[in-house]
Design a protein around this nucleic acid. Structure first.
Lengths: 254, 254
DNA sequence: CTCCTTCTGCGTATGTCATACGCTTAATTG
DNA sequence: CAATTAAGCGTATGACATACGCAGAAGGAG
């Protein structure tokens, strides 16, 4: 179960190979009673139902009717299980990523879909990510995003940077939403009470003389307005895509 | 040590009050042998030297020559200590946030400074954040950022959204950098080897027929180019500020 | 000066967790 | 049928956060 590191390149973590279906099962030995996919699915269901904190190796094993240590035949460490859990929640990206001419609509759809996936499984943003994506679904999403940028005059480096920027933004937004949900659950208040309360706390703590701009924001009622949670996302997404559009236009003009 | 929840508003977590210097020491009882600031400073030093994983309550206490449980007189839970650690690493923002007319230069400077702070303490991006900022330095940074936007025609809500967008971006970028550092430390390879290796792994795992756009990026050598790590940051920052500029221009034009 | 209140430091105990190690046993091949 | 290989898993280890309650210090009240 060592990472394979032959002359063709660097080590491929075994669990990643397994996720891509590249694991050749040895002909000898007892047949496996569990599957990697089954373990991941059980862990995802558990996280959905009781939160990421409930996902311990022993708890997942119990859910499967197996012993804790049985899982380690499929997964080298809990870390790897978490990586696969995240990948599983994304699933196949929604759409062939049409090579249609409208890159902007394509990327916007991509962002909305990723956001939806993250909101279906709010714990995903709490998983500490260990590196750039190598898992099947994650790469599928990246692929589809990149396809949207095919017709633009951007360099490959720029395309990648745009995807990095966009996925980072979606993640940031989802993190914020998740925080509000958690704060609501922890304090027992309704979700639409969290931000107004935050505004009050800031007002109590921030001296108007030292924090004039901040106080102005608060007293303008920014935290109290009844905005659908989508408004914030729309704003950032529009800004971001405007920035990309400016670049593309300058490229096309040249 | 209960959160105070009087008629003036919602509960202010006691450790936040302490961080703002709002704690009135009781006249009775033995004098405290530790200080909250000292505990936080020790924890930050420990995280800087040995990483976030080394920061356990017992380890921090040992660093101070105190017993583990002594810390709980100053901090309700480890979570709170982490929040204060993050705040401490930011420190006072660099510059009065001049109300000069050039919002763009101001915000860019803000972003670079925040990025520098995060890179001085790479573990900060690994701290699970529990909610919107309430700590002194965090709010100072927010204040200074907001001031940059004073002259623009943006609404208060929009200003806040811009700051959210920008700080999320800086954080995302710092997270990526931290991941590369961690991967480098874990695998023993040099930091500039990590991305090329990632490219090779993707090439090994992603079938060209199913991932054409991704393969095109890889084979264009995107992962191999000798880019200063700043290039990525510059690109995203420019896009982002371009997007904000487009909005401001449309506002001013009206 | 003395007692009482109040708060600090901290020893101990508890429950949880990830995971290393090695035994047993089931498939399969020769 | 014997040898091989890997699956399931029981046990043990060490780390961790933190609840609880005691002992002693500091100051105020009488």
């Amino acid at each position: 179960m060592e990472p394979t590191d032959d002359e063709t390149g660097p080590a491929l973590p075994p669990v990643i190979a397994a996720a891509w279906g590249l694991r050749e099962r040895a002909p000898k030995g007892p047949r496996p009673g569990l599957t990697l996919a089954g373990i991941v699915a059980a862990a995802v269901a558990l996280a959905d139902a009781e939160g990421l904190a409930a996902v311990s190796m022993s708890r997942v094993a119990k859910e499967l009717g197996a012993a804790t240590m049985a899982l380690y035949r499929y997964v080298g460490a809990k870390d790897e299980l978490l990586t696969l859990m995240v990948d599983a929640t994304f699933g196949e990206p929604p759409d062939p990523g049409g090579t249609g001419p409208d890159w902007r609509a394509g990327l916007a759809g991509w962002a909305w879909a990723e956001r939806a996936a993250l909101q279906r499984h709010p714990w995903v943003v709490r998983v500490p990510i260990s590196g750039p994506p190598l898992t099947p679904y994650s790469l599928s999403w990246l692929e589809n995003g990149l396809r949207c940028l095919a017709g633009t005059g951007l360099t490959e480096t720029e395309k990648m940077s745009v995807m990095l920027l966009l996925s980072g933004y979606v993640r940031s937004d989802a993190l914020l939403t998740a925080q509000i949900q958690e704060a609501s659950a922890a304090s027992g208040r309704r979700m639409d009470e969290i931000m107004p309360e935050y505004g009050q706390l800031v007002a109590r703590v921030a001296d108007p003389a030292r924090f004039p701009a901040l106080r102005k924001v608060i007293s303008a009622g920014v935290m109290n307005q009844e905005d659908g949670p989508d408004d914030e996302f729309v704003f950032g997404l529009d800004r971001l895509l405007d920035g990309v559009e400016a670049l593309i236009r300058s490229r096309t003009a040249t």
